[in-house]
Amino acid sequence: MRGLLQLFAAYGNFLLFGFLELLALVLVVNFNQRQGAIWENSWGMATAGLDQSADWLGEQWALRDELIKLQGENIRLMEQLDNARYSNAVRQDTFLRDSSEQLFSYIGANVISNTTISTANSIRLNKGGEHGVRPNMGVISTDGIVGVVRAVTPHFSQVMSLLHRETRIKAAIARSGYFGTLTWDGKSSRFMQLEAIPKHAALEKGDTVITSGYSQLFPEGLPIGLIEGFNLDGGGNFYNIKIKLRNDLNKVRYVYVIENEMWKEHKELDKAANE
């Protein structure tokens, strides 16, 4: 109240001036035909624009809801794919029903920050430990693989992007099945390198490169990219292959974190093997 009085003491005349001008203009548009018509017209145009913006905003909200629903739908479908399931079948038999268990399950997440310009890029997701994300889980988007979870807090997680100097991911050439290691030279965010493909492998420009399924991070057969070009170093035994990524990491927004349900068993096996 006191502040209001002080405001009036300091700006009273200006406020009165504003009030009187407003009053006069209200009278102008209400009691004068010509000015009133101009006002109606301009106001109509302004509100029409505003209406459109409000509609657009509402649509965006509706789309967000739709998006989360679709993400859930996608997860349910992806989890039913063969490459997400562990098959118990030992031999194919007419009478044996193929029983399978869930091997990979997916957690939907949104990207909240992303870099592609350094040599050690990272992506931050809006899902964390509370939602089941743990370190060393693979991350994919609908277009291909994105990276590997490195650190997790209850609500967020940090993903080592594919575009990282230390990236080593097993990848295979879909047509021939030869597999190598996917690395990044730190130059273009659209291209990566495939190393350790032996020189007797038959390659062709445009061959598809997929995940090999030899790691516990990614299901088998996820698309990574296409072979853009390759050459043999003089006297070397392995190809230098340049791969154009299918997934544009500059604009990745919605991703899935991959949970390997049999992770624990792999760990136990590692331990048993080392003893």
């Binding site: 005349n13 200006f14 001036f17 009187l20 001008e21 009053l23 006069a24 203009l25 209200v26 009278l27 102008v28 548009v29 209400n30 009691f31 004068n32 000015q35």
Partner: peptide
């Protein structure tokens, strides 16, 4: 406002003269 009454243009003269007064 009083001049507006004569001119039958309620508010126009008032707006101008208030601006001048300020």
């Amino acid at each position: 406002i009083c001049v507006d009454m004569f001119y039958d243009s309620l508010g126009v003269h008032a707006a101008a003269l208030t601006a001048m007064g300020y």
